[in-house]
């Protein structure tokens, strides 16, 4: 009985246009596999590697500056080599990716949860409500997200002691990136809401005295959320880049819990003394991660937006 329903479900899924489009886009398949692998490596780091690179007690200075395994002087115990303090690069990348993904995903969730409600309210009500919300969004859009993040970081750094700051660094970063990028989600949602509110199914709901909030949640939201979530996928990649940039500049994630950006910054100073691997591998991971997420986002956008086809 259960098998039947599962096979029926699978028949439905495999016959679906989305599945078809996915299976006929090799680039998307590769990007998805890469993303899944990176997610698995990042969140399964504590099972996949014996090293705990950010535990101060595990520093092995004797093993510092070991090149990757295939280079002369390399060692199969440290596949991608070690950094100046003897930390395993591969393990550092795994933990670093974890931090980058957490920051990327949570900050997008934050901006989406600000942007979607404000966008729906602006688009549905129109008039001065719309003007007020969207002007505010416009003003915020003129300030680059990095600048906003720098500002918030600066404020927390001066008001909080350095120990406290280290603990709150990641939440602060998430909030600053999240707050900085809500306007684009609000814009997309708003334009969708403006179209939907004129449709007669909204009038039909008004006719039976449905409260406005209920109309927005039950009718408008399900009909406008799709495009916003697709853009949010690409937003994750952008947030990871912003986080990496900030961390590279030294104002993001502290070096005690490094993200990919922090690792690139740390390795950057060794680039000219020949220890290229310390910065190259984190940077390479960042590129692949951002590229994969972007490619998936592009595919989602093309598949679910018939106008582009």
């Amino acid at each position: 009985m259960k098998d039947v329903s599962i096979s029926k479900w699978w028949a439905g899924v495999s016959d679906h246009d989305v599945t078809y489009s996915f299976l006929h886009s090799p680039v998307t398949i590769v990007a998805t596999v890469a993303t899944i692998l990176m997610f698995a490596a990042a969140f399964g780091a504590s099972f996949l590697t014996i090293y705990t690179p950010f535990d101060p007690g595990s520093l092995e200075l004797r093993e510092a500056f070991m090149p990757p395994a295939w280079e002369q002087g390399g060692n199969s115990e440290h596949l991608l080599g070690t950094d100046g303090q003897g930390r395993d690069i591969l393990a550092a990348i795994m933990y670093g990716t974890q931090v980058s993904l957490v920051v990327g995903i949570l900050s997008v969730l934050l901006s989406v949860s600000i942007g979607i409600p404000l966008g729906i309210i602006a688009g549905y009500y129109g008039g001065w409500v719309d003007t007020a919300i969207m002007r505010f969004a416009d003003i915020q859009l003129t300030i680059p997200p990095i600048l906003i993040a720098l500002m918030i970081d600066g404020i927390t750094r001066t008001t909080l002691s350095s120990e406290v700051h280290e603990i709150v660094a990641i939440p602060v970063l998430i909030i600053s990136i999240g707050v900085a990028s809500w306007p684009q989600y609000a814009r997309i949602t708003r334009s969708g809401a403006m179209v939907e509110r004129r449709k007669d199914y909204i009038a039909a709901a008004k006719l039976i005295q449905t409260p406005t909030a209920a109309i927005m949640v039950r009718h408008v939201l399900p009909n406008v959320i799709g495009p916003t979530l697709i853009v949010a996928t690409i937003g994750v990649a952008v947030a990871i880049i912003i986080e990496a940039t900030l961390s590279f500049l030294g104002v993001g994630i502290p070096s005690t819990t490094p993200s990919l950006g922090t690792l690139i910054r740390i390795g950057n100073s060794f680039l000219f003394s020949g220890e290229w691997w310390i910065t190259f591998f984190p940077a390479f991971t960042l590129v692949i991660l951002v590229l994969s997420v972007n490619l998936i986002g592009d595919w989602l956008r093309d598949t679910f937006n018939p106008k582009l086809r």
Partner: peptide, 15 residues
């Protein structure tokens, strides 16, 4: 009092 609308496409919530 209820209403029937012109467009059979826009008057039903597609979701």
């Amino acid at each position: 009092m209820q209403m029937i609308f012109q467009s059979p496409y826009a008057s039903l919530d597609p979701r």
